[in-house]
């Protein structure tokens, strides 16, 4: 199935801002992270169509997911 992936902040480095990807049915956010070479602890927030979702969220075809890195400095 086809989904769109938007990356934000440091996740764009050596990757992309937005891309469409073909992924297997019943994939989760974690599967997408693996495909992108992002370790789960690096993730701040995942959103689907503008709403915050957890990493075990099962993706539907046609959705747009947005991934934001975790930031903890002060």
């Amino acid at each position: 199935m086809n989904i769109s992936i938007k990356l934000f902040a440091g996740f764009r480095q050596n990757r992309f801002k937005m891309e469409e990807r073909e992924i297997p049915e019943n994939s989760t956010i974690i599967d997408v992270l693996n495909q992108l070479g992002i370790n789960e602890p690096e993730l701040g927030v995942a959103m689907i169509d503008g709403r915050h979702v957890t990493t075990d969220h099962v993706l539907q075809t046609g959705v747009t997911i947005s991934l934001f890195p975790k930031v903890g400095g002060g």
Binding site: A9, G10, E40, P41, E42, L43, G44, T54, T55, P69, K70, V71, G72, G73
Partner: peptide, 10 residues
Amino acid sequence: THNSQESGLE
């Protein structure tokens, strides 16, 4: 929630 123990991008 999912990963509070690790540090971030900084």
